[in-house]
Design a protein around this nucleic acid. Structure first.
Lengths: 117, 117
DNA sequence: GTAAGTAATTACCATTTAGTAATCAGTTAC
DNA sequence: GTAACTGATTACTAAATGGTAATTACTTAC
């Protein structure tokens, strides 16, 4: 399967997935944050998914992982310069979302995820 | 489950999903396009998924569906003004993607989709 | 020796999403 | 009467993703 049918697809995929944008948001607003802190800030995320997301963001150069090999270990995450670029671009989306909201629009998606519940 | 943990999440979800951004791209560049034409422009998409995407985009006011009740029917799709807003915001993401590319970055994601093949 | 503390990883199951193939409706052309 | 045309829908299967719970490693404190 061709990786991307659209130039913006790969980047969009890099920030999609449950919790991903929230993680970016938190890292942007809180600066370097430790793993356990992130867990606390997102009461319903699991360690597995948080780890998955951070690994993915790290692999894409969006997030930087720093580890102090103390016992117990201390690991913290922050946005890279690229991550900050990205967040800037995401704000453009956010502005559109807010304009729509102000104009009384709602994104009443047909995704099963929201439709069923 | 809380619908969104992050303000940009709902909008991001509205444009995510395989083929979605490509469809927006095509509608932006080709103007009104008929269903069958879209099928032709995306040789590997299935009618089911194309219909799903168009319905979702329509429900969100991003795409407008127009039907002439002739036999055989003629249905065409185009971006709404909101859809054009959205595409503008997506270009911001695209610009970031291109800058990264120019700088030799690659989004080497851990997604199975790309990792396996 | 056992619990606490941190940052995971693993095995497993449930839910979502994508994809395939068959079918429908209604009219025209053969 | 049967095939062609267009824009779907349906039932079904496969794959991806999300979530839970148990477990690991290493050291300090009790």
């Amino acid at each position: 399967m061709p990786a991307n049918e659209c130039p913006m697809d790969p980047l969009l995929r890099a920030v999609t997935g449950r919790w991903t944008t929230y993680i970016l948001w938190l890292l942007a607003n809180e600066g370097p944050v430790r793993f356990g802190e992130l867990m606390g800030l997102m009461p319903k995320i699991s360690a597995k998914v948080l780890t998955d997301r951070l690994r993915m963001l790290e692999k894409n150069g969006i997030v930087l992982r720093e580890q102090k090999s103390t016992i117990p270990p201390e690991v913290s995450y922050q946005l890279t310069p690229q991550g900050r670029d990205l967040l800037g671009a995401l704000q453009a989306l956010n502005r559109v979302a807010r304009e729509w909201e102000r104009a009384g629009w709602s994104l009443d998606r047909g995704f099963p995820e929201t439709a069923i519940q």
